[in-house]
Design a protein around this nucleic acid. Sequence first.
DNA 1: GTCTATAGGTTGATAGAC
DNA 2: GTCTATCAACCTATAGAC
Lengths: 190, 190
Amino acid sequence: MTKRALSRKHIVTKSAEMFRHRSFTEVSMRDIARALNVKAASLYNHISSKQEILELIIFDLVEIFITRITNTQNKNIDIESKLIEIIQTHIDIAINQPNAFATLNNDWKYLADEKKQVFISRRIEYENKLKQIITEGQKNGAIRDQNPDIIIYMMLTSLRTLHLWYERQDQKQDTLMKQIPKMILYGVLP
Amino acid sequence: MTKRALSRKHIVTKSAEMFRHRSFTEVSMRDIARALNVKAASLYNHISSKQEILELIIFDLVEIFITRITNTQNKNIDIESKLIEIIQTHIDIAINQPNAFATLNNDWKYLADEKKQVFISRRIEYENKLKQIITEGQKNGAIRDQNPDIIIYMMLTSLRTLHLWYERQDQKQDTLMKQIPKMILYGVLP
DNA sequence: GTCTATAGGTTGATAGAC
DNA sequence: GTCTATCAACCTATAGAC
């Protein structure tokens, strides 16, 4: 019945919130503990290491990204609609899960070696799904015949720091949902 | 006549090289010293603090960016050519000064409070020059009539991590110089 | 102008009392 | 399951010998 029982979930959520604004290496276990009104040692009753917190934040979101692009990939809609849906997924996550999203984008490099390799593999898997959609679109003439790696780069980088910019400019979600895909696609579509 | 005299310039150059791959906070003075085959204490004969190294890297490049956009701004060419030139400036710097470029983009937030404020002011100054060009283009009908902040965001974010991607994909500079502006502008121009 | 030694602080993590 | 106390390692920076 305690109002604020310490749990893995609380620790992970609060950590993501803190990693968003000051990176993984800058936030100490003492900082996280202080924000949860406990002492650092107490955290270790719920999680085994600082690394584990990072892994929980990042890999949960990785699964969400892969699930959603797979979903889009399997729909019976045209290529342009697929790309819009993928872009909107990124905007949705950037706005509605900004803490985990920022941590994934900024702090994946602090994953321990083995986990970092897993992350990179999953990212390549994601990019390959996107590449399949793009090359399929290029065969149909639905997408401009340009180096698909450059197209993917342009799509993904502009979406990677949306959470920062959203915070700074205070744009409405539905404005972004309309305008960003348009700006990306007019460069991608013939 | 020593082959490798320690100097401010050596220290700053080597530091930028290291900050590119592991951020400012992750690279210690001992690391920098080791890479230069001296002991950490020796660095302090040439620079006053770790902060000073960061400032030298970042503000040198800030001046280059501002000089170059001012230059473009004052030319007698049409708006589209101005935008292409600005984009190409970013690509040029990302490719030819990748270390300072990465440090500026990733580590400006580690500048000490006062210097960070100066940096932010200079960045706003830069973005305002870009905004002037864009709104002028919008009056002429040369640029799509869309929120200029979103246009600037799209232009700048896609250029901010070019150095990483360039490294990963091994694209040729002249390919990027042609294709990236095209991809950005087809989303900006009517 | 480089070195050793060290001050004074931080870090992630653990041992063991309660 | 939280706490205090602590370890061992690291950090930036300085003092002072050479």
